[in-house]
Amino acid sequence: MEIQSKKQRLYWKSVRLFTAVLLVVWFLASFGAGIIFREFLDQYYIGGAPLGFWFAQQGAIYVFLIIIIIYCLGMSHLEKKYDFTN
């Protein structure tokens, strides 16, 4: 659409790609490790906890936190790169 500049289009494309990649990680850490692959992962241990179980009760939460931190850093970088920082 003509009201949107090329710069804005490229920025929005990068944002969507970045978001999609992080959501894949979000899915793998929770639904993946904690539910779908739990039984397989449970043969391994982290300390005294079966790995799949640990992901479902602890690990996924840590990964979520890391995802948001990376998102904040990455978005600041994208805003700078496309000069939307005001």
């Binding site: 978001t19 992080l22 959501l23 979000w26 929770s30 904690g34 739990r38 179980f53 479902a56 009760q57 996924a60 939460i61 979520f64 995802i67 948001i68 998102y71 978005m75």
Partner: peptide, 28 residues
């Protein structure tokens, strides 16, 4: 969680994982 064991994980993942969606898709 004490009674449900692994079954209690739905609350742990569900009530924290929503913040990823909120941060990435809605809030900003």
């Amino acid at each position: 969680i004490a009674f449900l064991g692994y079954g209690g994980s739905v609350y742990l993942m569900g009530w924290t994982g929503g913040y990823v969606l909120l941060a990435l898709l809605l809030a900003p």
